[in-house]
Design a protein around this nucleic acid. Structure first.
Lengths: 108, 108
DNA sequence: CGTGTAAGGAATTCTGACACG
DNA sequence: CGTGTAAGGAATTCTGACACG
């Protein structure tokens, strides 16, 4: 419950491999970053590093762009989704708090 | 049952990242390949590509080397393990065949 | 707006070899 | 045997800019 995403989210893939895996051009991949849709990490030397999750995200982005959606709209959607996910997490945490209050601490 | 290893086994990581993740030198990583302990793929340009599974394997190898085990011994162990895994798979397949023979084809 | 491209430079990776022990 | 290193070259990546539309 804290490790299963260890491979999917680790930023270890350079842009050339991402290009092969997604079929996008490096220009496109960098542009989506410029538009705040994707957030690669960097090596000490400055090379971008992506995760498998980033690759899937890039393919979603590319599909939307093909459908005529503009980058700022995609960003808005993503922020909305992110907010929803955070709220869901919060709700879950509150329910857990209720349970702990009523039935005692089960975690330790 | 055919996709959960999709991230772990995909060869997408360049040697510099592997160096960071394992703490090994590039010299060591390339040497273990020369000794047939590890089998990276290549980009069209010739750069090595490793998987997360390779990284874990490299760390196992490094540990054994520290313990004084020689590369050819490690290779022998690996071949033995590989053979065992294949036999286990075979047994599984034969049992499945027995089941199918007795209770009919359930797969389709 | 989203993408292609040429430009120049820097970081990355490659191989084969010498060294040590 | 396993590893470090300097050498020279090739592949990879980076940024900022011009172009088109």
């Amino acid at each position: 419950m804290s490790n299963e995403a260890s491979y999917k989210d680790k930023k270890v893939i350079t842009i050339g491999i991402v290009r092969e895996l997604t079929g996008l051009s490096e220009r496109q991949i960098r542009y989506y970053e410029e538009r705040k849709l994707i957030f690669p990490e960097r090596t000490p030397g400055g090379s971008r590093k992506y995760s498998f999750a980033d690759i899937e995200l890039l393919m979603d982005i590319a599909e939307k762009i093909e459908d005529g959606v503009q980058t700022f709209e995609i960003r808005q959607e993503m922020m909305k989704d992110k907010k929803k996910a955070e709220q869901a997490k919060l709700r879950k945490k509150m329910i857990q708090g209720q349970l702990n209050a009523q039935f005692g601490i089960r975690k330790a």
